[in-house]
């Protein structure tokens, strides 16, 4: 896996570590942070359609592709 790619490119069921978030400080990214999406946490992509469903720890959430693209994962 490359160092840095948007989570939207992962396949379903793939687990990866968040490396950074785009547009830090924007309202949309603030929602991601509120859901627990932070650099360093492990995220599992559960579903890609109709929305991106992810799991972090015991939290599951759905976001649209606009928000999902802001999440970059890597090793």
């Amino acid at each position: 896996m490359p160092e840095d790619l948007p989570v939207t490119l992962l396949g379903e069921g793939v687990r990866a570590r968040v490396v950074r978030l785009d547009q830090p400080g924007s309202p949309g990214t603030a929602h991601l942070v509120a859901l627990g999406v932070l650099p360093g946490v492990e995220v599992t992509l559960l579903q890609r359609y109709p929305a991106f469903v992810m799991r972090i720890g015991h939290t599951e959430f759905a976001v649209d592709d606009q928000l999902a693209r802001r999440i970059h994962v890597g090793r």
Binding site: G28, E60, F61, A62, V63, D64, Q66
Partner: peptide, 9 residues
Amino acid sequence: PVFHMELPP
């Protein structure tokens, strides 16, 4: 709007 939603079990 952007869509985001926590999915409770």
